[in-house]
Amino acid sequence: MKEHIKDNLINFFIIVTMINIVIFICGTFMAPDQNITYAAFLVPIIDGILGVIPGLVMYSKRELTVKQMIVREIIQFVMVEIIILLFSFGFSGFKIADLKMIGVVALSVAVVYISVLLIRFFLDSRKAKKMTDDLKAFQNALTGDKPGE
């Protein structure tokens, strides 16, 4: 459980950073003259919290297989999309005029979600490389071989 919470905390910070980048890019191209208030700074944080809720809820004590993990990841992604869209457009009711904006937000959520997975994969790859090196050194130290032999 501790590892799960730690993982989601890391995800939260990555999500907040990615949302800031997405807002910057979308804002620059779609509404360059838009003035935003201080309250806008809360949007990435709130979206970040909403984005990690499905991950926290879907904690499983069982050892999941890779297939189950993929299915879980897809369900989690759909849940994040629904939650963010409901939070962004649900209060004012979904209007036809907002269709383009809904599409942009849905796409942004997908981009952020994939980015989080890619960043985590990149961080884990570095960790795995270090572990492989340590493993080799450990085995060589025990067998008396020199690295590379």
Partner: peptide, 29 residues
Amino acid sequence: IMKAESVKPALNGRFSCRLVNGEEVIISR
């Protein structure tokens, strides 16, 4: 441990450990 060859990332914070016979086992989070 002496039969482990390399480690690579698996999904969701887990890692996959490749053994010298080519088999893979999961290191859970």
